[in-house]
Amino acid sequence: MQTLKIVITGGYAAGKTQFIRSISDIDPISTDYAVTLDEERALKNQTTVALDFGTIAINDQVTLYLFGTPGQERFDFMWEHLSIGCLGYVIMVDSCRPGHFVETRRLMDRFSELTDAPFVVAANKQDDPTALPLSYIRRRLELPLTIPIIACVATERESVKQVLLALLQHILLLTPDELDPVSS
């Protein structure tokens, strides 16, 4: 059995847990605990402190694992473990919280130090009529045009599928064509 790993990361309350919940074949394994800080509790009541875990069975031999990282920077020691050997990663950002862009930008820099894996940005909550446009989010994240940014609604399975497909397409473009199948 071969396993492949995709990491779902992003700032606090960006929608990572919901993203995995919407697409996973299994009931995701979450390690959520009650939020302790007041300013964080204003956004949500439970938060991921270690990881979220979901799977997608590709065929009999291959399973895709989805790992969601904890959002708060005080748990960033987990990011390094989760990024090892990942095929690619999705950076999630809340389209209605411009105050989180700086934190997301820092997280992008940190992940680029941890892994060379390709990534895409998923702009969550794009179904909200007040959501910021993708072009503005790209500018604020200083995202080069070579990195895809995809509109996302983490609660909708179809939208989550489109993000994963965009990531896979991005990986395809960056992977040499003549490679043999992966050796585990």
């Binding site: 492949l4 590709i58 065929n59 095929l87 390709p118 497909l165 992977t175 064509d177 490679l179 050796s183």
Partner: peptide, 18 residues
């Protein structure tokens, strides 16, 4: 740390599955 090397065939298989 470099990401794992993977063939286009497998990547396309994953895309089809998703």
């Amino acid at each position: 740390k470099a990401p794992p090397v993977i063939s286009h065939t497998l990547l396309n298989a994953i895309k089809r599955r998703i």
